[in-house]
Simulated assay, not measured.
Amino acid sequence: MSVKRPNPAQWLWYAVGGKLPDRYREWVLHDATAPTWLVRHVIRRLVFMAPILAALYLVLAVMMNFDLTIVLVGLGLGVYAGMYYSLIFSTHSVDSRVTRHGYPDQYASQVRKALKQAERDRYNATWRNGGATSR
């Protein structure tokens, strides 16, 4: 059975921090533990920042007629600072998101760690310990 994905409107709600219905619990866990979990986190943060950046651009560049270069540099620095802090707290943020959907505290981190260890064990069994040797 495949994991049920939320529709685009539900995903937008999820991206800005909302809780999805319980039927999407498994998808939330997959979202937090897939190999691309950090990329997904960055995309969610960019979606969260987009309306704020658009409003600031509208006010500063269009309504107040500030120099476009200064506005774009300022917005770029805002994106940089926002992404910097978002990435610093990405593990905590994703773990909190998973906990909000009914899983134990730090469950996503534990699952990611277990998946990474299983991959490392598989690699070692193939290439280090039991694999073909070249002599």
Rank of each mutant, 00 (worst) to 15 (best):
V98W: 13
G82E: 01
A50Y: 12
L68H: 11
L77D: 02
V16E: 02
M1Q: 13
S2I: 10
L60D: 09
H101E: 00
L46T: 02
G78W: 12
H92P: 09
A50W: 13
Y57C: 07
L72V: 13
L56K: 00
N129S: 06
H30R: 12
L58A: 11
W11M: 06
N65Y: 00
V42D: 02
R135D: 03
V39A: 05
P51T: 02
A61G: 12
F66Q: 10
H92G: 15
A34F: 13
R100K: 11
A61R: 03
V79Y: 08
V73W: 03
S93I: 05
R120T: 07
V39Q: 11
H30T: 05
V94N: 01
T91E: 07
V28K: 00
I88P: 03
L115Q: 11
W11N: 13
L87V: 06
T126V: 11
W37T: 08
G17W: 07
A61H: 09
P35Q: 06
A9H: 06
P8D: 00
I88R: 10
V59R: 00
A54L: 10
V98L: 10
F89I: 11
W13M: 03
L56E: 01
G18C: 09
S93F: 15
A15P: 03
R45C: 12
D95R: 08
V79E: 01
V79R: 01
N129T: 11
V111A: 08
L20T: 03
W127H: 15
A114P: 07
G76F: 06
Y84W: 15
F48A: 10
W27N: 01
L87W: 10
T91C: 04
Y24T: 01
K19A: 07
W127Q: 04
A34S: 14
H101S: 02
G130V: 04
E26P: 08
H92L: 14
W13S: 13
Y14K: 05
H41F: 14
G17T: 05
Y24M: 04
T126G: 03
K4M: 09
L58W: 15
M63S: 13
Q110W: 10
L29D: 01
